[in-house]
Amino acid sequence: MKLIRGLQNLQRAGIDSASGCVLTIGNFDGVHRGHQALLTRAVELAERYGVPATVLSFEPTPREYFSGERAPARVSNLCTKLLDLGSFGIGQVVLHRFGSAFAQLEATVFVRDVLASQLGVRAIVIGDDFRFGARRAGDLEMLRREGARLGFEVDGIASVCAEGLRCSSTALRDALAVPDLTHCEALLGRPYRLVGRVRGGLRLGRTLGMPTANVNLRRQPALRLGVYAVEARALNSDGTGGEFLPGVANLGVRPTLGLTRCLLETHLIDHSEDLYGRLLEVRFRQFLRPEQRFDDLSALSAQMQRDKSDAAAFFASKSTGPA
């Protein structure tokens, strides 16, 4: 999958109105089943038109731009989102910076200058509640009118529901905050996961007898901080990987050490492969306990061993093991 950082780099990436694309637009935070319906339809239309299926997304998200620190936490990090988009057959992602100029862009100008002139859309797939442009003035009906005038197809997709609730990033955030991993899986159609590159850390886990693969998270995700029974595997750059291995992971800021940056620390049970520099996929299977501060490293080490035993017991209780 090709990643283009900014609309200003479209031509450098070989994308123009002549080459064309089928487009879907959104934050795609979590890539839940509603998002998946959009992606699947975009890929179908792209095959029909013989052009790439393309996602236009934004950094920061519009809500983060307007709300600042009051914006809700993200369901997943950027690395996870890009891999999720690629797994559904998206050929290219345009990741554009959302700033004041873009926020003030009138809906009709966005359609004419961005969709038609820059991207050359043959078709666009959006949710039936999609709004865009300054003052959120653009909607599905307006886009259909402009599409008829400018010569591209517009396909509106109805909301998708799971367990009686509309699949949305908001519903995912609510479930992750509990955390209700079973409901998350229903909304996603798969276990909740985070993916990131393993970086060097303090090596404290190794000192305490439980070496961990550490993924720094730029933003604290919506998932409740704490300790989880997880399945993890190293990934190749295309998102493929081997079998999942059982483990225990701490998602948190490590208050015992007086730190504040969010980190995902994963210990693979009975596995000692060096994962530094590799992409690591971590699937969250069972919440074990909240994050807490310990009086000293001895108390922390004892709790880590109990966490490891609890995670091993969880997987042992599954007749088929990790799935």
Rank of each mutant, 00 (worst) to 15 (best):
T61M: 14
L95C: 00
R173S: 12
D128Q: 10
G151I: 00
E146Y: 12
G68T: 02
N77C: 00
A177Q: 07
R136D: 15
G91S: 13
F98P: 14
D129V: 11
L187D: 10
E153N: 06
P179L: 06
R136L: 15
A123D: 01
L95D: 04
P72W: 07
A73N: 06
A123F: 00
Y49E: 05
A175G: 05
C184V: 02
G89H: 07
T61C: 08
E64Q: 14
R131Q: 13
S168E: 01
L165F: 03
S57G: 02
L119N: 03
D84L: 10
V111R: 04
A175K: 04
D139P: 01
E141N: 13
N77G: 06
A148H: 08
V93C: 06
D155R: 11
E47M: 11
A46V: 13
C167N: 03
L188S: 05
F98Y: 15
S100E: 15
R74H: 14
L143T: 02
F152Q: 05
L187Q: 01
D128R: 07
G99H: 15
V55Q: 03
I124C: 07
I124G: 03
R74P: 11
L45W: 10
R149G: 14
S57R: 02
T170N: 04
I90M: 02
E146F: 09
L78E: 04
L150E: 14
D84T: 04
P179E: 12
C184Q: 05
A116K: 09
A71T: 06
S117F: 06
A162T: 00
A103F: 09
Q104R: 14
L83A: 12
S159D: 11
R74V: 06
G156M: 03
Q118K: 11
A148T: 10
G91E: 11
A53K: 02
L140W: 08
S67D: 15
I90Y: 03
D174P: 01
T182D: 12
V51P: 05
T54D: 02
T80C: 02
V154L: 00
A103M: 07
C184I: 05
P72V: 08
I126Y: 01
Y65L: 06
V114S: 00
R166S: 14
P191M: 12
L150S: 03
H96N: 11
A73G: 08
S159W: 04
